[in-house]
Amino acid sequence: MELLKFLGAPLIGALIGYCTNYIAVKMLFRPLKPVKFGKATMPFTPGIIPKRKPALAKAIGNMVGNSLIGEEEIKGILTSDNMKEAVVSSISGAIENTIKEKSIKDMVSFVVDEHGYTDKKAAAVDYISNKIIEGVKDIDIAGIIMQEGTTAIKGMGGMLAMFVNEAMIASIAEPIGAKVDEYILINGKDLIQSKVQGEVTNLEEKPLSELVSLEDTNGISTVIREIYEKMLDEEIGNIVNAFDICAVVEKKINDMDIMDLEQLIMSVMKSELSAIVNLGALIGFVLGLLNLFI
């Protein structure tokens, strides 16, 4: 009986300390919403974390963005050899798969619709045809006929070479050359355009792997690496600023449901919060003991 009286005060103190700290820990998260009595709001509602969630989000965002993952850390990540290799490997792999599976038509169709593709194809055919016509016009057809005809006749030897001289060949070559030029001027574009149209149609359906060797991807990888390194050298500041880690973390926390936020905090601090509750019981017990001797 005397022992019960002796331990009564410490046990009651331990119970009070435990309950007080337990309620204090719970009040970090509970209640989730304000408790109203008419127009009046009950003090300490909602809980500290639900009430201060925006300020908590901003503080964590600033801590992460300014102290944990700052400008230098992001620069280090982007310029690391592992990141460079990952970027180059990813883009090179995508290019290889594209070369294996896609045709020229497929590639252009990524950029323009079907109507736009038809217009681009027609424009390409017309451009190539015009360039061929311009090239043909610059050829001295009469001069070629005369030169080749003279060479051929001289090569035959005999009487023909004695009677057919360069002047005679020129008199024949010039009107023939003029007729050829006239024919090309009138009908050449239609003939050439028809041939170019057929070649382009045949070419557009072929997979890129028939036009570009997969062995060339080593060169592509080198070009990609050079572009990436040059981009980092010139734009690293703008890239880092675009990340805005502070704002990203702040928004992420603000968008979290309060129950998810509680679960996140408890997953990290559950043992510490439990220790605080138990510490309250211990302090209450000790104070109860001290009260016996005062």
Rank of each mutant, 00 (worst) to 15 (best):
G188A: 09
K179A: 13
A173K: 06
I186M: 07
I283W: 03
G8F: 00
L292C: 01
S267D: 05
V136T: 09
N187K: 15
A14Q: 01
N241M: 09
E85Q: 15
N21F: 00
I176C: 09
V87G: 03
K75F: 06
Y183Q: 07
E262K: 12
L232K: 02
M156G: 10
V25D: 03
D113Y: 02
N82I: 13
I169D: 05
M266Y: 05
L68K: 13
E234H: 05
M259L: 13
L290D: 08
I227E: 04
D113G: 14
T151Q: 07
V180S: 13
A122K: 10
L56D: 04
A94N: 12
G198E: 10
I258R: 02
I77F: 10
A170E: 13
I128N: 03
V200N: 08
D140N: 15
A152N: 01
N291D: 10
L211S: 08
K39F: 13
V88F: 01
N66Q: 07
I236V: 12
L232F: 04
S194N: 07
K137T: 10
V164K: 03
A14M: 04
T222G: 14
E96S: 15
K137A: 13
S109E: 03
S267K: 14
A173C: 10
V112R: 01
K189M: 03
L15D: 01
E215D: 14
L203A: 12
K154P: 01
I224G: 06
T98H: 05
L208E: 02
I49F: 11
I192H: 07
N278K: 07
K102A: 15
D140F: 14
T20L: 06
E134V: 07
F29N: 03
V112I: 06
T20A: 07
F110I: 06
I169H: 09
I48A: 02
K179N: 11
T151V: 09
T150H: 14
L185R: 09
I236H: 07
Y127K: 03
A59F: 05
M259K: 12
L232D: 00
I141N: 10
K75A: 08
P34I: 05
S103A: 10
V112K: 04
G188N: 13
